[in-house]
Amino acid sequence: MLIQAVYAAARQVFSPALRRILWKSLALTAALLALVWVGLTRLFSYFLQNHTISADYPFLDGFASFVAGAGLIVALIYLLPAISAIVAGYFLDDVADVVERSDFPADPPGRALPMGHAVLYGLRFAGLSLLVNLVALLVFFIPGVNFSVFFIANAYLLGREYFELAAGRFQSPGQAAQMRVENRGTVFAAGFIVAGLVVVPILNLLTPIFGVALMVHLHKRLAARALAADMGIRSAPK
């Protein structure tokens, strides 16, 4: 089921129907990344300018600048899930509508979230992601633990939030959360795939579109399986 959903989502990311949304998503993601990069570089520049190590040892300042530059890249990687969350919340309904129309035309369409609610949900998702990744960043210098914590934390968070975004078009927040809990293993595995995409340069820009498409497919398949199981129980002889 998960393999099928991943393949279908990957195929649709570059489909003509999603191409316009993809370009807008890439532009918004790149703009937010650039904004964060400018803010971080100015923060680091201010810190280095006001905390010169020693005029007698300029090579130490050079080394500090190098370490700061590497730290910026690491910080950006840890902030990317939060940026992805904002973009995903903004384009959720556009992507979900395309996926539902193209691959599930016989099913009732989902209920679009009001724009204000979608943005607030995306901001909440981003806030949680930022908090989780700040905690993960604290163990960055512990070998063997750093990336494990990053992947596990983001697999759980991205799986949970993307799935509930997709399921929320058909269910109440409580029902969407309950469905996720009932299928926690599958949702976590899907989140692990999305988390893996986050750390791949260039491809990580596709995370919001791919994540939403993947979870729409996964939710549809899980809902169909649950319905089939329920029908089987009801039709079973007493």
Rank of each mutant, 00 (worst) to 15 (best):
L158N: 09
V139L: 02
V145F: 11
V198Y: 04
A177D: 15
I193K: 11
V187W: 11
P173T: 00
E161N: 01
V149Y: 04
N146I: 01
S148P: 02
H117S: 10
N133P: 03
R111F: 00
V145E: 13
V181R: 11
G144D: 10
V132Q: 02
V199D: 08
V187E: 14
F192N: 13
F141P: 00
F141C: 05
R111H: 01
A177E: 15
G168C: 07
P173I: 02
G116C: 02
Y162T: 00
Q178N: 13
E161Y: 00
A118K: 09
A189T: 10
L131A: 15
G174Q: 05
G159C: 08
Y162W: 06
R169D: 00
L138I: 08
A153C: 01
R184Q: 15
V181G: 04
A167S: 09
E182N: 05
R111I: 00
G185L: 09
L123G: 08
V187I: 08
V135W: 03
P143C: 14
F141S: 10
F147W: 11
F125K: 08
A195H: 09
L165S: 11
M115E: 15
L113E: 04
G144W: 04
E182D: 11
I142G: 12
I193C: 14
T186W: 06
A136F: 01
M115H: 05
A189S: 12
Q175T: 09
F150G: 02
L128M: 10
F150N: 03
V199G: 11
N154Y: 02
P114M: 02
R124S: 05
S129K: 08
G122K: 11
G127C: 10
L157T: 11
V199P: 08
F151H: 05
M179C: 09
P143K: 03
L134Q: 07
A177V: 05
L197F: 11
Q178T: 11
R180A: 10
F140W: 11
L128I: 12
G122H: 13
F140S: 05
R111T: 02
S129P: 14
A112S: 04
L134F: 09
F147M: 14
G196E: 03
L197H: 07
M179Q: 13
R124F: 01
G116W: 01
A155S: 12
F147K: 05
R124M: 07
E182L: 09
G122W: 12
V139T: 02
I142Q: 14
E182W: 03
F192D: 15
V199M: 09
G174W: 00
R169T: 01
F141I: 01
E161W: 00
V145D: 14
I152H: 07
V119L: 10
V194G: 13
L158D: 12
R184G: 14
L130V: 02
V187Q: 08
A155E: 12
V181W: 07
N146E: 12
V198Q: 10
L165D: 11
Q178M: 12
N183I: 00
E161F: 00
F141G: 06
G191Q: 12
L120S: 09
G159F: 13
